[in-house]
Design a protein around this nucleic acid. Structure first.
Lengths: 224, 224
DNA sequence: CCGTATCCAATAAGATACTG
DNA sequence: CAGTATCTTATTGGATACGG
């Protein structure tokens, strides 16, 4: 796939690329193919297995996902790893440099939030919604707030921490959190970004805190 | 191109898209096709005509450029305009929202600058190199500096202003600048980012200032 | 279940020639 | 100059089928 091909006429061809020293063009050669950046996004909060990735990227086919993972690996943005026993299952994880692509994901997300055509009712992955919290967090609204919020989406759980006006996210067990949301990422998105009532969510723990949490995020106004 | 098609089986199909409410995915539907973001980049410093765009995007074909411009236009990121007489020539210009995509271009460029595979000797457009100055500017090195630097690339010229630790760029006449670089964008890139001697550039005006200018930019270290 | 490999149909992209 | 039209090639997605 990465090698040269030879046409009927016998001419060697190099793989399609931009002829452009601009860093932006080079970045697009690394992560500009269809699905690439979304696969990398799904690795931003920790290693994932093939079937999880396929499940959280509706519409991707197994062969394209395998190809994208192979490209990310050969380019140094992701690697295969094996979870320690007894799990001993193969996963894909982002490299340090791959993780550093998060500002790109954020810039795209922040910019697209102004799109008049954005449809927020589509499915959304757990990683996406948690990364969006990082992107859209408004520190001014979290003044004086210290909290640990848990999220349980099926068999994947995350812990979000707010302290000193900063928000951090990690995968992990929700025990000890002040409030825990359980359900589908779509329901959470509907409340935080769509103005749906917080009562539509299953919340355990401090409900007042949970309600305040859902109001910490600000979507930019629509363009045009 | 934008409408539905009907297969032999008579089923209506919508155009290919991600099924994902994530803003990142939506952004990729707007500007994720091959060439889209590079075309938009070329509009970042002002209106351009079709042939200029084609000339500064080596490898793009006329039909793909026309298609990308049409998509940018229908999505509200660019528009056609006619320059005032006597020029009266048709140009494409970015909309306000299109201009707001610059942080995406910057995030991509900054991230890709760490790539071990980046080839800085490829051709680069005038817009690219000037946008890269905006991205890579190090205000600490410009402490106390106030200057107007001109750039002449063929028949296109730009003025870069440094004042109060901030750098701005605009197209315009270089008269009145403290120093003026004339030549190819590639030569300038070789000096600023490649360590080539400043003597390889044609400089008019304050040569000491010009030399200081070429050292205001910091490339991040390579990954891995 | 976790992927890979292969085949086929549908799009997208690229090269080139051509028109107002 | 500013695109279209046409043709060829490459990529993508979907549907299996196959091995660990």
């Amino acid at each position: 796939m990465q090698s040269e091909k030879v046409t009927k006429a016998g001419q060697a061809e190099t793989k399609r690329g931009y002829v452009d020293a601009c860093g932006t063009a080079h970045a697009l050669e690394l992560i500009g193919e269809r699905w690439s950046l979304l696969v990398l996004r799904e690795l931003m909060l920790g290693p994932r297995r093939f079937s999880e990735l396929k499940g959280d990227l509706p519409g991707i086919s197994a062969n394209v996902l395998a190809q994208r993972l192979g490209e990310l690996e050969s380019r140094g943005l992701a690697r295969r790893a094996r979870l320690p026993p007894p799990a001993s299952v193969q996963v894909y994880e982002a490299t340090q440099w791959g993780l550093e692509a998060e500002p790109i994901v954020q810039a795209l997300g922040r910019w697209a939030a102004r799109s008049p055509r954005h449809d927020p009712t589509l499915p959304i992955s757990g990683v996406s919604i948690l990364l969006s919290f990082r992107t859209m967090f408004d520190p001014a609204r979290a003044r004086g707030l210290e909290a640990r919020i848990g999220f349980v989406f099926g068999d994947m759980s995350y812990v979000l921490t707010i302290a000193s006006g900063a928000l951090t996210v990690a995968r992990g067990n929700v025990e000890g959190c002040d409030a825990v949301f359980t359900g589908q990422p779509e329901q959470l998105a509907a409340v935080v970004y769509g103005g749906a009532p917080v009562e539509t969510l299953q919340v355990d723990g401090d409900r007042v805190l949970a309600t305040r949490f859902t109001n910490l995020f600000e979507l930019p106004s629509k363009a045009q």
